[in-house]
């Protein structure tokens, strides 16, 4: 049911906005903003991995 998906996505973005308003840590904000798509957990994990790899590959 395509409508159901749309409704769920709308509701999700409402939660995300609600949580974002309460967050001050920029990394946390970036991760929560990635909560989207078919597999939101993977999206968040990828973002976390990206942030971590920026540290790993950062200046020695």
């Amino acid at each position: 049911m395509p409508d159901k998906t749309k409704i769920e996505k709308d509701v999700e973005s409402e939660y995300i906005d609600g949580v974002l308003q309460r967050l001050s840590n920029e990394i946390h904000k970036k991760i929560v903003k990635e909560y989207k798509g078919e597999d939101p957990v993977s999206s968040m994990e990828s973002k976390l991995g990206e942030i971590v790899m920026a540290i790993v590959n950062g200046e020695d």
Binding site: E12, Y15, I31, V41, M44, E45, L48
Partner: peptide, 12 residues
Amino acid sequence: SLDNFQRNIQFL
């Protein structure tokens, strides 16, 4: 959706 959202954040 809220329940899923919380569980997914907890998992991560």
